[in-house]
Design a protein around this nucleic acid. Structure first.
Lengths: 118, 118
DNA sequence: GCTCTCGTTCACATCTTCTTCACGGGCCGA
DNA sequence: TCGGCCCGTGAAGAAGATGTGAACGAGAGC
């Protein structure tokens, strides 16, 4: 992954610092496990775009996603829970059924959610 | 969804990214199901020209359209609904009775709603 | 050894999507 | 006018995908 090049990624009130292994939510440190962090970094590396489970698995776990492996989904869930607790009411990780997940940059929102546009 | 070479296709205010499974309408993310997306990609691949149901089915579903199969029509309907909600007042998918469907740039003739524009 | 955290996997719940059917309207030729 | 064809559209059920809580074992630190 190209985390080497990025100093940090800002997604709304989230600030991800791949090189430091640190995530800040509204300035406060967010405690993530290694997998959770890697997954978030993988998502953030393609922020705004849909990332397939295969790609996420490759980047966060390494190796190839085996059929039936739900690790990815489970960790998306854990990540969502922690993000929700840190920044209630905001949805960062969006599901695209059949495609994968997408980290919302805050710049583009799906249509069914009438929330802050720009 | 495996639409090979193109990075993305622009049709009016629609931006289709075949490789990512993502569609943007005026910059905002449009959530489509796999079939809807494939259908749109198939239409966009021939933008401005009429595409027969057989051809659409071949590209979006794979295999041959069986007589009496209305899947294509149903999904054109679903797609139209989502596009209408995303970009109200614009008609992208036009019906050509007896021939098929055609994806329009949406810029040319917005009005003319009297009857089905055939 | 004990405890805690983490990663994985399972089972079940819930939500989406896909397919097919059914009904109705417009159009056209007989 | 009648009947057939074509298409629009809503709905229902099945199939599939994802969400979610919990159990289990492995390691690390105490």
């Amino acid at each position: 992954m190209q985390t080497g090049s990025t100093q940090f990624v800002r997604v709304g009130e989230l600030e991800i610092r791949p090189r430091e292994g640190l995530v800040l939510a509204r300035g406060r440190v967010l405690t993530l496990s290694v997998r959770e962090f890697d997954l978030l970094v993988a998502l953030a590396g393609h922020a705004g775009r849909i990332v397939s489970r295969e790609e996420l698995y490759r980047q966060a776990w390494g190796g190839t996603l085996r059929g039936g492996d739900r690790s990815c989904d489970v960790y998306v869930h854990k990540l969502r829970a922690k993000l929700e607790r840190a920044l209630p009411g905001q949805r960062f990780i969006h599901t695209h059924v059949g495609f994968g997940y997408r980290l919302d940059t805050g710049a583009s929102h799906p249509f069914h959610t009438a929330s802050t546009g720009r």
